[in-house]
């Protein structure tokens, strides 16, 4: 199995603060990997650098054989990297269906010289995606009217519309109610098997349910890596978290 994502020596400085200090990670197709650590450990920064929202100060990010270290976000999207944001970011003045069709546009292969056919194809895919996430009844609701949990799901749907090979999730469980959490886990559980997922998360349940491997970050560097069970049992990790439930 060829490697999909290769991160070597990733570094990011903010003035005199070294937020990420030499981070390495290799992911193959279908891998599910979680980055955990205290606030300020650098995990979100790593994700942002892979997504293209933050420029690395040093190091290299390769995706599907291409060096994407300096590529802008929209180019990465076209290569197959999709992401969600920590605060769900759907487009508020559009309906759920419109959000998905807009998200799909840059990736749709239907000829742009046949607008009505294109529109139909996009709408069909969007409707199917909404149904897959149990949001079919919200197709014509403006995104601004959705609950926080629904907005989170909508955003994941938007990311999936691109047919990505790598999905970056930034704290998907943040701010969710128990009911929302159940729906999120259902959604993440039904992701295509060949989709690689890299997520940053604080919530243990999500990490245990989704991730095959976990990396613990501390002070911008990898502390340790392993399966969720290994990490949960690691005394060094518990110490670093200082009392956070292991």
């Amino acid at each position: 199995m060829t490697d999909l994502l290769t991160i070597t020596g990733l570094r990011r400085d903010f003035g005199s603060l070294r937020a990420v200090d030499g981070f390495d990670l290799t992911l193959a197709e279908g891998d599910r990997h979680a980055l955990i650590g205290c606030n300020g450990a650098g995990k979100s920064t790593v994700l942002h650098m892979v997504a293209g929202a933050v420029r690395p100060t040093g190091g290299r990010i390769a995706f599907a054989g291409t060096d994407v270290t300096r590529k802008p976000a929209h180019r990465r999207s076209r290569l197959g990297i999709a992401r969600t944001f920590q605060t769900p970011a759907p487009l508020d003045s559009f309906t759920c269906l419109e959000n998905l069709t807009l998200a799909a546009r840059p990736h749709d292969a239907t000829s742009r010289w046949r607008p009505s056919r294109r529109r139909a194809a996009l709408a069909e895919r969007a409707t199917a995606q909404l149904a897959a996430l149990n949001l079919a009844d919200r197709a014509d609701t403006p995104a601004s009217a959705l609950s926080h949990g629904q907005r989170r799901l909508l955003e994941i749907a938007m990311a999936l519309m691109a047919g990505p090979r790598l999905l970056l999730l930034d704290e998907p469980a943040a701010g969710l109610t128990d009911a929302d959490m159940a729906r999120l886990l259902e959604c993440l559980g039904s992701l295509p098997a060949e989709l690689t997922v890299l997520l940053v998360e604080h919530h243990q349940d999500v990490v245990t349910a989704i991730a095959d491997t976990v990396t613990v970050l501390h002070n911008g560097r990898t502390l340790t890596s392993g399966t969720p069970a290994e990490i949960a049992a690691d005394p060094q990790v518990a110490e670093v978290y200082l009392g956070t439930a292991a």
Binding site: A51, A53, P72, A73, H74, S77, R78, A82, R83, F85, A89, P90, L91, D92, S93, F94, E98, L102, A103, R105, P106, H107, E155, M158, A159, M161, A162
Partner: peptide, 19 residues
């Protein structure tokens, strides 16, 4: 729609691949 999308949330549009 494309332009209004940018107005609503530019970062999301970029992440979806829009120029």
């Amino acid at each position: 729609s494309l332009v209004r999308g940018v107005r609503d949330n530019e970062a999301r549009m970029r992440a979806d691949g829009h120029r």
